[in-house]
Design a protein around this nucleic acid. Structure first.
Length: 426
DNA sequence: TCTGGGGTCCTAGGACCC
DNA sequence: TCTGGGGTCCTAGGACCC
């Protein structure tokens, strides 16, 4: 049996922990650059604020209902998430952290207990330890646990826990779940399924395997099997090493000059390099993209992207920033209003591995010596000790393109200085 | 004025090998 | 008139997730 523990309206709940006056009020959290809604309290959902909708198009509704609006505070949410996960790890031997607000727990050893009762205990403990409310779905497969979790969330009569134990209970749950609400079935596939007269999860479970295999491929067939109680997706307790790392941002205003764009691109590349070193990986491919707003008129649109292979696998900020700078020179077109840029490093290998490809012409691309590696280690330890950004490459600068974050809450749990500011204010 | 960010997996098709 | 069979590797694009 799998239990899926999912935090309710996670980002909003994080804000509420430190500001209890927000309980019972409509609250939303915005995406980076204060763009779209990425979390909504139940009250905000009831008003009709849609997930992913742009805030500026809902200004009237926000004002009329006195909705409390926050900029995204990822350091806070990340820290609260690890508190929730630490609590869960004490309550079940094996867990998979699936996302910032979700974890799968292996319940197979708990069959002799009353699972429903134990799930309620987990729920109570998480709220007691962290202040975050969660819902729990339990079933024999991960996909069914997702279905159960959704029911627990939607239907107050479950009081936060839904256990789908018997075949009969599972079928009944599938009958009241639409295909578009199944984990693994997105917009395109639900559209197709509806044309085939497959509307509910039960319809999908009973559909012809040939049809599913042909149009939804192996991935869809797996979903179908999971709905029928055949477990295809196992618990992944160790996160596999990343295959690519990306840092991208929309700008707070449009950027037109090469220099400002270069500062943004260097900053994103520097962040990728830090993420690479944290992951213990080195990259040999670097992709850069720069673009105007997708909402621009066609003649004002530009989308430029290019990938280069680097002579050595690297995790060195200086090498990567230099490479990205050269790419930018080839992609930059004057006369456009740039709104977003991003850097992706890929073809990753463990940094310590010996599988790195050696260059064909070593005299042209000399292997970096140890001093550069040491420099990066020193940079990272200074930033670790004095806070991120204390020391950086000179090309990094966010003055020109910095995203808007006008409604940011303090980083209550990760920055002493901001906690002290809160106390002073009160 | 204003519209997010960061990932994974799978398939088809092209290029190549003997 | 007629032109094999069996593979691998790589990439782009499309689907999905939170």
């Amino acid at each position: 049996m799998f239990a899926l523990v999912d935090c309710n309206n996670f980002y909003v709940s994080c804000e509420r922990v430190f500001n209890p006056a927000l309980r019972g009020r409509p609250v939303v959290v915005l995406s980076n650059n204060d763009g779209c809604f990425i979390a909504r309290s139940e009250e905000a959902k009831a008003i009709g604020l849609a997930m992913g909708a742009p805030a500026f198009k809902n200004r009237e509704l926000l004002k009329r209902h006195k909705v409390v609006v926050y900029s995204a505070n990822f350091p806070l949410y990340g820290d609260m998430s690890s508190r929730v996960m630490t609590t869960l790890a004490d309550l079940a031997p094996d867990l998979e952290i699936y996302s910032i607000d979700e974890a799968f727990l292996d319940m197979s050893g708990f069959q002799r207990y009353d699972l429903d009762h134990y799930a309620r205990f987990i729920r109570k403990t998480v709220t007691q330890h962290t202040g975050i409310p969660v819902c729990i779905g339990i079933a024999p497969t991960k996909t069914l646990a997702k279905v159960a979790n959704r029911l627990a969330k939607k239907n107050p009569c479950y009081a936060g826990v839904c256990l789908l134990n018997t075949d009969k209970e599972q079928r009944a749950a599938l009958a009241i779940t639409q295909v578009e609400d199944i984990w693994g079935i997105g917009r395109q596939w639900s559209k197709f399924l509806h044309t085939q007269n497959i509307h509910t999860a039960l319809d999908l479970a009973e559909a012809s395997l040939g049809l599913i295999r042909k149009h939804l491929h192996i991935t869809g067939a797996r979903v179908q099997a999971e709905l029928n109680g055949k477990s295809c997706l196992s618990l992944e307790m160790v996160r596999p090493a990343k295959q690519s790392i990306c840092t991208s941002r929309s700008f707070g205003r449009s950027v037109t000059t090469f220099d400002e764009l270069h500062q943004a691109v260097s900053t994103f590349t520097g962040k990728c390099a830090i993420k690479l070193r944290k992951e213990g990986s080195a990259a040999s491919l670097l992709t850069l993209f720069i673009c105007t707003s997708p909402f621009n008129a066609p003649e004002k649109k530009y989308w430029g992207t290019r990938t280069v292979t680097m002579p050595h696998h690297t995790q060195d900020s200086i090498v990567l920033i230099r490479t990205a700078g050269a790419l930018l020179e080839s992609l930059f077109r004057a006369g456009y209003e740039y709104k977003k840029a991003g850097v992706i490093v890929s073809r990753l290998i463990p940094a310590a591995s010996s599988t790195a490809t050696l260059p064909l012409f070593p005299q042209e691309f000399p292997v970096p010596d140890d001093r550069q590696k040491k420099l990066m280690t020193v940079m990272d330890s200074i930033n670790q000790r004095y806070g991120s950004g204390s020391i950086q490459i000179a090309a990094e600068n966010s003055a020109g393109w910095k995203p808007h974050q006008k409604l940011l809450s303090p980083r209550y749990t990760t920055a002493w200085k901001e906690l002290i500011e809160v106390r002073t204010l009160q």
